[in-house]
Simulated assay, not measured.
Amino acid sequence: MRVRSSLPTVSMSYVHAVCTAMDVPPATIGALLEQAGMAPGLLSQPGARVTERQFAALYRLVVAYADDEMPRLFSRPLRPGALKFTCLSLLDARSLAVALHRWSHVLHLLQDDFELELDATQPISRVALAQVPGGRSCKPVALDLMLKLIHGVASWLVARRIPLIRVDFSFPRPSFAGEYQWLYPGPVRFDQPQTALHLEASYLQMAVRRTKVELNEFLRRAPEDWLFVSFKDELLSQRLRDHLAQQLPQPVTAEAAAVALHVSTRTLHRRLGDEGTSFQRVKDELRRDMAVQKLTRTREPMAAIAAELGFDSTASFHRAFKGWTGDTPGVYRGRARGA
């Protein structure tokens, strides 16, 4: 089976932060990791990577274990079915602004830790999570996942990936901050006064386009369709990543890539810098993620994988992969098969 996907992977540092915040006993998390197709030992290896599908499977398992759609992240659990009935209440809203206003009332009924605030009076609108006076302080992961849920559902409702002017988080910059490049379609800032999304007000006037029939498929795939939304139309780094994936195993220079993407080489480097990355980093992360996909989902020989990813030898592939993850490809594949 050939895997040509350029989908990003998720760092175990991020997975570990999520599992820790969900307060599930280590022994239980180990069992759930195995059920999701991940070796429990990977949780202690920050350099390891897992696929989006594996992370989504783990999230669903923790939801079932905790009987909570935001597992133990808030003072009151969101029982399974909360997201479904929330979305049902939004489907007949005449615009996204009305839908988000309704959602703020639903959240007020469901939990006591924060309020959803919508400011649509300015050209740049703000959707914020404000702590309830006297309420429990929200964990950073709780704010992250709730904000991602709001953005993912909002994008789904209008059937369009909503680009963001910026994303603010009230907590300090975590060690895995690089993961947010793939989770949010806009620059992310930390240590801000309030956790919030900033977007053009015109998006809030867009009509809600989804139906009850479409909602069933959206929920069946949850959390994939709200956590891992594709934003390749907005980010140049994603467009570059997809272009490089199509050209493998042939090497591509920054100059050639700029021509293919219809920008100057200088603009390519500048915009990648604005997105918090670089040409070499995009190239390395693409090959790393494709290697993880192949090692966990296929039985291709190491030499074949190295050749498909554009390495001149198996040895150079081994050195690069160990630099990316801390493990050799063989050890990494062995752990995946063990799981």
Rank of each mutant, 00 (worst) to 15 (best):
A254K: 10
Q54F: 05
T20V: 14
L42W: 05
S237I: 02
R94L: 13
G326H: 12
R270C: 07
R136V: 15
A36W: 01
T20A: 12
C138D: 14
E224Q: 12
D119S: 10
F85V: 08
S104N: 04
R239W: 02
Q205D: 14
D327F: 14
A306P: 01
R335V: 08
D119H: 03
Y65F: 14
E179P: 06
T121V: 12
E34C: 00
T121Q: 11
L83Q: 13
I305K: 00
A154G: 07
L183R: 01
M146P: 02
R53N: 14
V62W: 02
E214M: 09
D67M: 13
M70D: 10
P140G: 05
R337W: 11
A257P: 05
V10N: 04
A315G: 13
R221W: 09
D92M: 11
S125Y: 04
T253F: 11
V158M: 03
R4W: 14
V282G: 03
A306W: 00
P133E: 11
L33R: 01
Q122K: 13
D233H: 04
L116Q: 10
Q280W: 11
R297H: 13
R220P: 03
P163T: 07
V213L: 13
V282C: 03
A291F: 02
A93Y: 14
G41F: 07
A128W: 00
L118A: 02
Q238P: 04
P251N: 05
F85R: 10
T121H: 12
A245R: 04
